[in-house]
């Protein structure tokens, strides 16, 4: 579904990603871990189309199409979704109104009729329940005055309503207490399906106690330094990221072998 090839990205003059190769198939859940500043968030923002990031080399194929040539809104309409690490507060814009407008633009792109107010409300209620959110959130301005946990849940709500094919979660677990973490994991697990791929970016292993990924990649210094199965996350927790850096320096060949 997603095929990232030799991706290089600059932000404000500095090269952050220095050649990322990554393949994710439909139905798979991949986790990307790595120390702060390794380029995890940059990768997610580039995939979603943030214009502040400059791709200097490489390409990304999404369902065979060149993702990097698509406008952000078209990526979303084609089924790409990014749960932001820092969801943006939008004063004056009603949460439900925004979500309905977004959903109906996506539906229009797919040749489906728009949902009317009643149909949407029904859908929204169901999804609010799924992510464990109070109904009151639907009429509040998007993310404004939300706690950290509420913002992350709101991202999960959007994910649940928009039903993307490729869901990218950027540190959705950071700043969450254990209940919120469980709720997020529950939402993610409920969304797992053979048609949907997920890319979960996280700094800590704890989210992966609740979501078992098919593959775990470790990002360091703008490259994927190590790839392994679900156990790799536990190994990292025990040994720390310095261990990966040393591994990466010792032999890039290891990562190369595991990737294929």
């Amino acid at each position: 579904m997603l095929d990232i090839r030799d991706l290089h990205v600059r932000v404000g003059g500095a090269e952050i990603l220095k050649g990322i190769d990554l393949k994710i198939g439909a139905g798979e859940v991949h986790a990307i871990m790595g120390p702060n500043g390794s380029g995890k968030s940059t990768l997610t923002q580039v995939l979603a189309g943030n214009p502040q990031y400059e791709v200097t080399r490489g390409e990304v194929l999404y369902e065979g199409k060149e993702l990097l040539k698509m406008e952000p809104e078209n990526r979303a309409r084609e089924g790409v979704f990014l749960a932001f690490q820092y969801p943006v507060e939008i004063p004056g814009v009603n949460n439900a109104y925004f979500l309905k407008a977004a959903l109906n633009e996506i539906r229009a792109h797919r040749g489906k009729p728009p949902l009317d107010a009643m149909e949407f409300l029904e859908l929204l209620r169901e999804k609010l329940k799924l992510v464990g959110m109070d109904e009151g959130f639907k009429n509040r301005p998007v993310n404004q005055g939300f706690s950290g946990g509420e913002k992350k849940r709101n991202e999960m709500l959007q994910l649940a309503v928009l039903e993307p094919k490729l869901a990218i979660l950027d540190e959705t677990d950071s700043g969450l207490d254990i209940d919120a973490l469980k709720a997020v994991a529950q939402g993610v697990n409920a969304m797992r399906s053979p048609q949907r791929a997920m890319l979960i970016v996280t700094h800590y292993q704890r989210l992966l106690n609740y979501i078992t990924p098919d593959r775990v990649h470790v990002l360091a210094e703008g490259r994927i330094a190590l790839t392994g199965g679900p156990k790799l996350a536990h190994e990292l927790e025990a040994k720390g990221y310095d261990w990966v850096r040393k591994q990466a320096l010792a032999g890039r060949a290891l990562a190369g072998k595991e990737k294929t």
């Binding site: 214009p51 952000p72 809104e73 932001f84 943006v88 004063p91 814009v93 925004f98």
Partner: peptide, 30 residues
Amino acid sequence: LDAQALFYLKSRGMGDDSARGLLTEGFAHE
């Protein structure tokens, strides 16, 4: 208009015009 907010709305599937429209209305709502 806040570039980050604009990108956020677009990343949810809203077109440029509708995203700008929504943010502009949001600005006036206060």
